[in-house]
């Protein structure tokens, strides 16, 4: 059985999305500006993984959207 998302879990999910968003940008800038080839390569790979992380968090949030209550619970 899938339980509804708690308010705390939602906060952690959206905080994590902000973190992943920042990391994506940091990796993109480093990949675009670094002189060292291996650093450029690892940053561009990491950027893709952070995109996947962001998508996974987004999916979890939208999956739980349908079963969320519309009124505050006691």
């Amino acid at each position: 059985m899938i339980l509804p998302l708690t308010a705390k879990e939602m906060e952690y999910i959206v905080d994590s999305m902000s973190n992943e968003d920042l990391l994506m940008k940091q990796c993109a800038v480093t990949a675009a500006t670094a002189n060292n080839g291996s650093l450029r390569q690892i940053c561009s790979q990491m950027q893709q993984v952070h995109e996947q992380h962001y998508q996974a968090l987004m999916s979890a949030l939208s999956y739980h959207q349908s079963m969320a209550p519309t009124q505050p619970q006691s």
Binding site: I2, L3, P4, L5, T6, K8, E9, Y12, I13, D15, S16, N19, E20, L22, L23, Q26, C27, V29, T30, T33, A34, L39, C43, M46, A60, H64
Partner: peptide, 28 residues
Amino acid sequence: MAYTVLADLKRVSREYAIAATESTCPDI
């Protein structure tokens, strides 16, 4: 730049560990 990314990866790892221990839903 690399150090900034590394420091953020360390911070985000800790945050995921805390989030996992404070989750109620098994899928989350």
